[in-house]
Amino acid sequence: MADRRKDVDWSRLFHAEGPASDTPRRLAALLGDDADAFVDGYTHLWSTLRREGKAWPATAPTALLVAELLNDPLLGPDDPSLPDAMLVYLYAVGVAADLGEGAAEVRSRVEVHAGELRAWTDAYLSADAGDRVRMWQDGTGLGELVLDQAALACFDLVPALLPRVLPHLASERARRRTCAAAAVGSLARHPSTSAQRPVLLERLTSMARAAESSYDLATTLIAIDHLGGDTRPWLTHPHAGVRGCAALAPGLTGDDVAERVLRGLAGSPRAFGESFGDVAPPLQFQFRPYRDLLTPEGFLRVDEVGRPTPGSAAT
């Protein structure tokens, strides 16, 4: 990990709190035994490297480091859940990177404005906190285009991230397999993975059939949704949350059973979350737009304009 950190010019990057020169030190703490430093590094990972599902310039190099952490024995040797958290982070990166066929248009805009983006970034990195806030409102739109450029960097990185995640589908730990399934569900939407997708869907469907908990099953079903798979067999599952996640699949638009399930969710979105008991809803519901469904009007919006598709789940 140390060598990778040195390979990146962090002085040219920024995250939600400003310049990313502090990122290497704070990420290194994830492999240390200082509890306070670890908490700081973990908080930094989640609270400063993405914004409402968008990538920052520091996100792509951080994601590559996180992928390498997955198999590092120094990552939480006494807490086997930490690699699970890294997989959830990679799920979020996959969501931010889900540009699909729109990547070509983003790339074109970035290339046309390359010089302006470098100048804007230089000014941003040298500005104080107050001026950085004002730069987002300068009327040029360059700040948002810098974030589009960051998403494009994540998009270009996905083919390198997916192979790091796939082995974890065979983990001995059920929850790690589930977190890996979620990450695969977002990362494998990349156009370069189209040939792999049928095999991955078969693997995820097999995992869903073998899932031992409603949480693991529902999370895996949303991963199948992301890849355009068939979740119809779970529309009549006895667990309400599982039925709801199955019904969100875009391929079931117009299906009478799926529509009844969604109308039921619209009537009581809180019941959906509570159906998982002491466990939180599937991890995808930590992020937009799935997170937005857990409101009184959330599933009503599904009724009005259609269920969220994997594409909308990434915007």
Rank of each mutant, 00 (worst) to 15 (best):
Q284I: 14
A280C: 06
T205W: 03
P77D: 04
A123T: 14
G254L: 08
D40V: 12
V112N: 09
A174H: 06
S194A: 14
A103G: 04
W120S: 02
L147F: 09
A127Q: 13
Q286H: 10
R107K: 14
A208P: 05
S11I: 02
A103T: 04
L217N: 02
S268T: 08
Q286I: 05
M86C: 15
A160G: 08
T236E: 14
A60W: 05
E116P: 11
S186F: 02
D98L: 01
E111K: 13
A208S: 10
A92W: 04
D292H: 11
A114W: 00
P80A: 13
D3L: 09
L265Q: 11
Y91S: 10
S275M: 02
A92S: 15
G143F: 12
P238V: 06
R109W: 00
S312H: 12
R25K: 09
T231S: 11
E68Q: 12
R25C: 00
L45W: 03
A247D: 08
A28L: 01
L166S: 09
G306P: 09
V184K: 06
F38V: 07
E111G: 11
V88S: 12
A170W: 00
Q284A: 15
R263L: 15
L201A: 02
G53N: 02
P308Y: 00
D255H: 13
V39G: 00
T309E: 10
L204M: 00
L283Q: 09
R243G: 09
T231V: 12
A280L: 11
A2P: 01
T140L: 08
R132D: 02
P233I: 12
T253L: 14
A96K: 14
G241Y: 08
S21Q: 12
D148P: 06
R301Q: 15
D122P: 05
C245K: 12
G264A: 15
A60M: 12
L169W: 00
A67S: 15
E259K: 06
A37Q: 14
D256F: 03
L70T: 03
W234T: 01
A103W: 00
P24W: 13
A103I: 05
S47H: 07
A258E: 06
D98S: 15
L45E: 01
A174R: 13
F38N: 07
A119C: 04
R232F: 02
Q137R: 15
R118P: 00
R209K: 13
G94C: 01
L235I: 04
L262H: 07
G53H: 13
T253C: 10
S213C: 03
L200R: 02
D216I: 06
T43K: 09
G264T: 11
A28D: 11
A160W: 01
A60Y: 04
A103K: 01
P61L: 11
A218V: 02
W120E: 07
A223M: 08
G76R: 07
R50N: 10
G298E: 05
G76V: 01
Y290M: 10
L65K: 04
P61C: 08
A258S: 12
L74C: 05
A240L: 13
L201D: 02
R189Y: 03
L169N: 07
D256M: 06
P310G: 07
P80D: 11
P289Q: 03
Q286S: 05
S186P: 03
V184C: 06
W56Y: 15
W136T: 10
G143I: 01
P167Q: 01
